[in-house]
Amino acid sequence: MGIVVIVAAVLFGAGGLCAVYRIVRGPSVLDRVIASDVLVATVICALGAEMAINRHVDTLPVLLVLALFAVLGSLAVGRFLGGKEHS
């Protein structure tokens, strides 16, 4: 089980780092927003994995809140940048 924890932590960490790299480097705002979404999703999955391994359910409400509000960032940026009005 110890090995599983280490491997999972490395995979989560690498995924998160990729997202951070894209946030820092991302050519456009949209790339950064997408990457921050991925970062949040990775955090959600990592929190869930920690619960699964340690057999508790304490952070389940946190997961719910993150899943609910992770979308707000993209929503705000999407609204702010706006699209062409198709008229």
Partner: peptide
Amino acid sequence: AALMCLAAGV
């Protein structure tokens, strides 16, 4: 799950 998150990052 961890592999999927890695795939998303990559």
